[in-house]
Each structure stands twice: as structure tokens, then as C-alpha cells.
Amino acid sequence: MIMEISAEGVRSGDERIIARVISQVENQRQQVFPLLKELYRSTELAYLVGITGPPGSGKSTLVEKLVLSWTAEEEKVAVIAIDPSSEFSGGALLGDRIRMGKISTEKNVFIRSMATRGYLGGLNPAIFDTVVVLSAAGYQKVVIETVGGGQNEIDIVRLADTTLVVTVPEAGDEIQTFKAGLMEAGDIFVLNKADQPTASRMELILKQMLEMNDSENHSSDNSNWEVPIVKTVGTEGEGIEELRRAVMQHRDFLSRSRKERYNHSRVIRNHVVHLMEEFLRNHYIDPLLESSAFQEILAGISARKTDPYTAVEQLLKSFNKEQGKHEN
């Protein structure tokens, strides 16, 4: 297929080009950096909505309904649905499209499934780069959906301007074990499947937890934002209007309190760090792991001829010399 992979191609909104560039962002990162440089400088980042929660809590269904409420207002919306990669095979099963049937052929919606690919050192930088591509392609909102619980999910959620944490009545005391970071990262709590009889009890538990959180974190980012609990029945579309409004209110809050810019600067800082880690790994650490010199050093450490600490000091010195070469 002949297709022009260029900044104009991305901005034209051609789905094939956008899709192909995202694949390059995932698989051929070095080759796509020139394009990303061009896109970033001429693009205002889309509004990022993160959504996380336990498996089966109805995230994808809520995303479907929420996206429909935005496209009804002529907005272009993209969804990045993230699922974990298998640590053993490196493969992944990406099943979030199953619950997004109603938006899967909408012309103003772009859905992309991504695997976490077990990125060392936290968030896979390809996710932020994908946001850059989608923003350049004219998507005004980008939803990032991820299964909640682990550190990776918290990192993903931290990208977002507004983060929805979804829970369900049957979660019960399980919610107590939500990672602390996730509780703090939530800008809006969604109690889905709220037509179940135990919903009001769960709402009470949630309220108590949020109050506790408040009193413990006087200095948290959310000090002036009262985290709402929105009750929804995703499959019936109940509570979606309230949820849409809550997202809008949080966005207003961010722009009033200038926290939107604070969030952006934090996100950018994190991304620069991620890119540097990626560069160091690709150019210095990974090539080293292959080398026989490294095997010798490891053998030396095993035999106590040297120690890990000295070895690292020497390796870092050799990196510095390498870098001199690299610059020439």
C-alpha cells in the first residue's frame, strides 16, 4: 500500500496514516522521531481523560457511552485501550473493543488497542507519543483506558488531565486495597452497576474513604476539588450525562486554578525522563548486555575478583567515553 507518512498525512485525519504512524511509534521508534518532532511543535495536546478500575467493572462500556455523548456534540474523540503484555510470551490479548461496538464505526472516533509491553522503568513512552499523534490528527479528547491496580496503571492515569476511577458495588472491602496512589489520582469516582441493591452501602464506603483521604492529604493536588462520586448503570446509559458534566466541571476547575498547565508540565517532565531512559537503555545498556566484555565482568563479580559497585563505576566511565564518540 502506498501511503504518505508525513505530518500533513497525519493532520489530514486519514485513519490509515494515523494507524501506521502509531505502529511506528510502537515498533520503529528511531525512524518516527523526526515526524514526532514536527508534530509536537505544531500541536496542542488533546484533553486527556484517564479511566481505570478493576476487571469487569464496566470501563469499556462507560467509555463507549461517554464517547457517544461527546461525538453527539461534534467532538472528535480517540480511545487508547491498554492491556497488559504477558511477561512470558510478550504477547497480549486486547479485548476492549468488545464493549465498544456502538462507537467502532463512528466517523469521529478512533480506537486503538495497545499492549503495555512490560516497559522497564514504568510507563511505555509510546503511549504519550501516541497522544501526540492523535492530537495532531485533530482528536480533541483522548481517553486512556487501563485495568486498575498496578503501578503501571497509576503511571498511565497520571498522564491524564481528568482521571475516572471506576468501582462496582460488589467490590466491597476490596476497595480498601486500592493502591493509595490510585485513590489520590482519582478526580472523579464512578460507582458503576449502581442499580444493584448493595450500591448505597458501597457509596457510603467510598464517601468515607474519600473523606479520610481528604483529611490525610491537605497538600494534595485536589485540595480545592471535591472529588464527586457519580453513580452509573453503564449498560443502560444511566448517569452518563452526570458523568459528562462532572468531567466538564473538573476541566473548568483545572483551567480556573491553572492546574491544567501544572499537569501538562508534570506530564512533559515525566515524558522527557522516560525518553532519556529509553535512549540510555537502547544506546548504552542493551548493547552492553550482548557483549562478551559484560559477561567477563559478571564472571569476575561471581569469582569476587571485582564487585558490582566497582564494576558499575567502571562501566559508567566507559559510557562517558562512548558518549564522546557519539557526539562526533
Binding site: 497480549a92 467502532s104 488497542s113
Partner: peptide
């Protein structure tokens, strides 16, 4: 997936368009 591929599954009753 277990062979290392990334597999998107779209669920039942898909139209050719989808």
C-alpha cells in the same frame, strides 16, 4: 497471545464494516 503475538479480539456479531 501465548506465541507472543498481540491479539485484538472484537467479540461476537461484527459487521464487515466493524
Amino acid at each position: 497471545k501465548e506465541a507472543g503475538m498481540e491479539v485484538v479480539y472484537t467479540g461476537l456479531r461484527q459487521t464487515p464494516e466493524q
